[in-house]
Design a protein around this nucleic acid. Sequence first.
DNA 1: TGCTCATGTTTACAACTGTAAGCAATAACG
DNA 2: CGTTATTGCTTACAGTTGTAAACATGAGCA
Lengths: 138, 138
Amino acid sequence: MSKKHVQKTAPPAPEAVAITEAEWDIMELLWEKSPRTSQEIATLLEEGRGWKRATVVTLLARLTAKGALATEPQGNRFLYTPAVVRSACVEDETRSFLDRMFGGALQPLVAHVAEHHSLTKKDIAELKALLDQIKPNS
Amino acid sequence: MSKKHVQKTAPPAPEAVAITEAEWDIMELLWEKSPRTSQEIATLLEEGRGWKRATVVTLLARLTAKGALATEPQGNRFLYTPAVVRSACVEDETRSFLDRMFGGALQPLVAHVAEHHSLTKKDIAELKALLDQIKPNS
DNA sequence: TGCTCATGTTTACAACTGTAAGCAATAACG
DNA sequence: CGTTATTGCTTACAGTTGTAAACATGAGCA
């Protein structure tokens, strides 16, 4: 095998990797559609965020290194695919956010949002409907 | 005035400062009760977090420098008081979190939490009650 | 087969963060 | 008044993050 395509990945697929702010932009694109080439992603983010190709490639490498992305060689390049599921990542962020800000509970968050973002009647109705659909855990 | 107590504060009181993870621990203590001396805070966080006094003092200085804390000299020390209100900080975090994770809307978050944290019947009831109390914005 | 282009790798670097030691000055105590 | 204990200030340092240039190498075209 060539000397180049070595792309160090994290051995076991850790089901929870920390994804930074900038990295999220890349993950979102791949969660939305994958696999993609670095070029595809770079093009999208050059426009959308003004990033240089090099920046995108660095982030891809970091994400791969920490096991958030899986790569499949294709010629002299890679196809990138998420190796972690979005909802699990969202889950982690949500948990840590709720813990830090609201003692881990949902109610105080909803109360806060209600107070500060002024929910519309429609929002409230939707939330109620949503709650009705939930099958309680106990 | 002595040469020592200089404590650079941020000139205008910016109503929104970025507070880091570690800094939150300090702010929480001061929001809960203020003013406090550095000693008080250090003692609490030495036990609670295993931080050294120096660490606490550094963080106090950083918070003061960015205008999150106000200081009042008292003898050879300071009394520290929050210069930003908690709910405003929570607000910023919440907004940015909701934007990043859920497109800024509350519903998807609630849906997510319902699915992943399994709300109890009681939780759901509480949330509904909460929603009933909210006076819609429109 | 030689050259160019695309693509990953290495290196860089500044800002921010967590964590803290060491120093200086002042208050407090004897 | 001298010694000690407090307390803030300065400096430090490694790890993370955002951002990217430079480089090497393999692929594809001429």
